[in-house]
Design a binder for these strands. Structure first.
Lengths: 154, 154
DNA sequence: CACTTGCTTCGAGTCCGCTCGAACCCTCTA
DNA sequence: TAGAGGGTTCGAGCGGACTCGAAGCAAGTG
């Protein structure tokens, strides 16, 4: 992996918190990351990062003098946000649409907020659905516990 | 839709409970359903039902004298269970494996219970993940509320 | 200087979970 | 008896989200 500055970047534990806090691996000003560093940091592959850029899911990523991508802290923040949207179950196409709204600037703040609130509604519904699923699964597991006891193997 | 017996089957509301309770549309003994009835009852398409059978995700479905599938209440129960597993996020291939265990009979009770408990663990993790995602999303929405206020449009 | 490593682009390939088109067969009703 | 409206099989096609192979360039190392 090409490390750009000093501090070689350490990847966070798998499935770690992708949420709010800043705390970037490098301070603003020295925040240049190669694609493989970003891959390590985000858990995405370099393929996926390039593809995200290609489909318009990333803002314009900077390039070095020889054409290599240089990600910065703002890119990391954006990717963390994309990660959140992905976890909500939002399709990539919708994320691209959201990215377009961001590119269009302040005029789309209302629409963006609406999108996020709709997404939150769907997420809440999904969580509820999974909780119901958990209940059903628990029933089934209890049934198995009973069945095993009945057949004399528990 | 070909209705087989008396009582034309009424499909439940979308996203309704797919869990434990019996309460079949027709009592045992008169429980024969055409594929399109089952589609209406489960929300799956007839295509998907045939495909499920083909890949071994259904037990042997009965056939009428002229080769048409005849589902019964046990099939509906199984499909409800498959629906639960699907909601847990279990891949179809794993569900097929589970169906095989069921076919193998009582000897696989232990293994089946283990599978279900593992699945429950994954489901719990997923629910936690979604709750974290919700927290992150709430942050972002709050941020948008602030941004809109600051730009004088809220 | 050759080599390795890591990046670049491009288009193609993969995996999953369906979804469908085509050709055909029954049965019921007009 | 003709046609409509189910159903059947088979294999192909699709949408989504990546994933990769090939060919090439640039910088660092023995």
């Amino acid at each position: 992996m090409t490390v750009i500055d000093g501090t070689p970047v350490k990847s966070p534990a798998v499935g770690s918190c992708v949420s709010a806090g800043p705390a970037h691996p490098r301070p603003d000003g020295q925040d240049r990351y190669t694609i493989s560093e970003v891959a390590a940091l985000t858990g995405l592959t370099a393929y996926t990062l390039r593809w995200y850029e290609q489909i318009g899911l990333m803002p314009q990523v900077q390039r070095s003098h020889n054409g290599q991508r240089l990600f910065d802290n703002r890119d990391l923040d954006w990717l963390a946000f994309v990660g959140t949207l992905r976890l909500t179950g939002m399709p990539v196409a919708d994320m691209v649409r959201f990215a377009e709204l961001v590119r269009q600037g302040e005029d789309t703040l209302d629409e963006r907020q609406e999108v996020l609130e709709r997404t939150r509604g769907e997420l809440l519904a999904r969580i509820g659905e999974l909780q119901d699923t958990l209940t059903a699964l628990n029933f089934k597991i209890d049934f198995y516990a009973g069945a095993r006891r009945a057949s004399g193997r528990a």
